[in-house]
Write a protein that binds this DNA or RNA. Sequence first.
DNA 1: TGTCTTAATTGACATTTATCAATTAATTTT
DNA 2: AAAATTAATTGATAAATGTCAATTAAGACA
Lengths: 244, 244
Amino acid sequence: MSGIKEPAVCGNCAECKYDCCFSNRHCGDSHIFGLLTHEELHALMDNKRQIHFRPGETILKQNTPLTHLVCIKGGLAKVVSEDPKGKNLILQIIKSNSIFTGGGSIVDDFRHFTVAAITDVDCCFIDTSRLYNTLTKNSAFAIELLKHSNNQHLKMLSTLINLSNKYMPGRVADTLLYLKNNIFETNPFDFILSKQELADMSGMTKESFIRSLKEFEDSGLIHHSRNTIEILKESELTEISKNG
Amino acid sequence: MSGIKEPAVCGNCAECKYDCCFSNRHCGDSHIFGLLTHEELHALMDNKRQIHFRPGETILKQNTPLTHLVCIKGGLAKVVSEDPKGKNLILQIIKSNSIFTGGGSIVDDFRHFTVAAITDVDCCFIDTSRLYNTLTKNSAFAIELLKHSNNQHLKMLSTLINLSNKYMPGRVADTLLYLKNNIFETNPFDFILSKQELADMSGMTKESFIRSLKEFEDSGLIHHSRNTIEILKESELTEISKNG
DNA sequence: TGTCTTAATTGACATTTATCAATTAATTTT
DNA sequence: AAAATTAATTGATAAATGTCAATTAAGACA
């Protein structure tokens, strides 16, 4: 893990070509940084640091103070809720160009999740103390962040319903469809996730996940080998997801 | 259910004494409406309607368009996620003086929950189309709403963890402690909720809830009769909650 | 008061899921 | 390449939870 202090640059500056929040001015679908003026962007990003993480490294640790926002510039990371007894629940996979506020921002200012790199990850750390100031000055930015927050809220609701109302086959189907349609966006897809991680996404033990996957394989719904899964009958998987 | 068009009044007007959002200027802990100027308050609340609901009535219905915010002025309501197969999950109980945005606001603008009255409920409906304008003009208000949203987010996270990581006794303990400490704030407490509703709060069938409750009774942790529950050994219940 | 209806409770049983131990496969290290 | 470690898989079993049916209790009503 290495921290490189970046110069204050933005899409409006000649020298600025290489950074997600600056040159592209968007994180995920929200284009949230595009709402800032040149000056506001500089004020917020001035002392931003871009950091590289290797697979497996912890980017943010649950229960530590929330001092920075994180923008994922490249790579995949997992958002994990760690519980004292060691049961991990993977709530979300974060892709390139997404902004991660961590839930507790502006509320209790500590982190409620751990974020860990799955692949190599490049990301920016943005000071939350500066965020407050930006929110005050630019209400369009504040509204966009509110939208982002509400979006996360709805995603978590969907996770909650999936995990609490469905039996294992439905939950496994959800995980597979989520990976194909939202994360990897190819079929078949190579995944870097272990069976334990897939189980942690589905709220079950790895043994149960494996058995459920095998049933799908035997029914011809999917085909999987070491690190690849191909979804053969998506509509049937969707049915299984719906029926719980 | 009756709708009474209210005059545009606020805490600054002489005639205004009777309304939660106006005279008290707060909803729950957030005092969010206190951040608005006299003019902004009027602009937002001008055509507000105050409505009375009787026990059991639906206040907001899942999957309908999200056109209004709701402020609960008096009474208790339940926030329910209804699933197509009829499995209901009660996510939250709403008390007096709380604001309910419903998750989907500013995102997809439809409701992701049903809200139903448990007791008699008085509440105000505030036009969300006016909300956007207010957010734009008053960033402190926007930040406060963001805080509210993040708060809801964290509460949902806690629900998610409780439901997915704990066995039944832990979940029942959570429900009982939540009712005592957050909703009724007395001990013993009279509850108006049916066993089915308590089970829906705990993510299990009513039969399972009843059995779990009986075990607590037999172990001397609680005492319950028809509509009253008394928590006798809170610290032990807290342990059960922690250990899942 | 007795009838009707709904909610609460109990018991027997089936299903779902986790746990534990053993084995095999894959990966890393030496 | 062999040894050592870690991950994946399988089977047997136990624990957790849901389902169904039957019974009792409580509340509503005429």
